[in-house]
Amino acid sequence: VTTYKLVINGKTLKGETTTKAVDAETAEKAFKQYANDNGVDAVWTYDDATKTFTVTEMV
């Protein structure tokens, strides 16, 4: 189990959160659900070296 981080650069929601998951795909599903629940529709990137997902909402 690995800890993954999500950085949110949204128009109305900004911040960071983490989740523990067995792999990046599982973490991504959890983070996308979190973003969807909070109304963030954005572009996703992932950095495997830092285990960090970044979501940037387009203006």
Rank of each mutant, 00 (worst) to 15 (best):
A42G: 15
G10Y: 15
D37K: 13
N9S: 07
N36W: 15
L6I: 03
D48M: 06
F53K: 00
D47Q: 03
K11M: 13
N38T: 12
D23C: 05
M58L: 12
D37H: 10
L13S: 07
K20P: 04
T18I: 07
Y46V: 00
T12G: 13
T18V: 07
K14N: 14
E57Y: 09
D23P: 00
K29E: 08
A42T: 06
K51I: 01
M58T: 11
T52P: 00
T26N: 06
I8L: 10
I8V: 06
W44T: 01
D41T: 09
E25Y: 10
F53T: 00
W44H: 00
D48H: 08
W44R: 00
V7F: 05
Y34F: 12
V59K: 08
V43A: 07
L6W: 02
E16T: 12
F31Y: 01
A49F: 10
V40C: 08
L13I: 12
N9T: 06
E28H: 13
T17E: 06
Q33V: 08
V59N: 11
Y46Q: 00
K20Q: 12
M58W: 11
Q33F: 05
A35C: 15
F53Q: 00
K11D: 11
A35R: 05
V40L: 14
A27D: 01
K20N: 12
E25N: 08
K14W: 12
A24G: 02
D37V: 13
F31V: 01
D23F: 03
E16V: 12
V40P: 06
A49V: 11
A49K: 11
T17I: 12
V22K: 11
K29W: 07
K32E: 04
D23K: 03
E25S: 09
K14V: 12
F53V: 01
T50V: 04
Y34D: 02
Y4M: 00
N38F: 15
A49Y: 08
Y4D: 01
W44I: 04
T3E: 09
L6S: 01
K32H: 08
K11T: 14
N9C: 13
I8A: 03
G39S: 07
E57R: 04
D41G: 06
Q33C: 08
A21T: 03
V40T: 05
T19P: 01
T17P: 03
K5F: 11
Y34Q: 04
A27L: 02
F31N: 00
N36H: 14
V22M: 10
K32C: 05
T52H: 01
Y4A: 01
V40N: 05
T45G: 04
Y4V: 02
E57G: 06
E16L: 06
V55F: 05
T3H: 04
V7R: 04
V7M: 04
G15M: 14
F31G: 00
G10C: 15
N38A: 14
D41I: 13
A35L: 15
I8M: 12
T17D: 03
A30D: 06
N36E: 14
G15P: 06
K5W: 08
T17H: 15
T54E: 04
G39D: 07
A21Q: 05
V59W: 11
T50K: 07
T50Q: 04
Y4G: 02
A24H: 09
T54M: 06
L6F: 07
E28S: 08
D47Y: 02
A30G: 03
T17F: 15
T45Y: 07
A27E: 00
N36I: 15
K32N: 03
K14H: 13
T45S: 12
N38Q: 14
T52L: 02
D37L: 15
G39E: 06
Q33S: 07
A21D: 01
D37M: 15
D48G: 06
Q33R: 09
W44L: 07
K14M: 12
K20G: 05
T12R: 03
T54K: 03
Y34M: 07
K32W: 06
E28L: 14
Y4T: 01
V43K: 08
E25H: 11
A30C: 13
K29I: 09
T54S: 05
D48N: 07
T19W: 10
F53A: 00
A24D: 03
T54Q: 04
A21E: 03
A27G: 00
V22A: 09
T19S: 04
T3G: 02
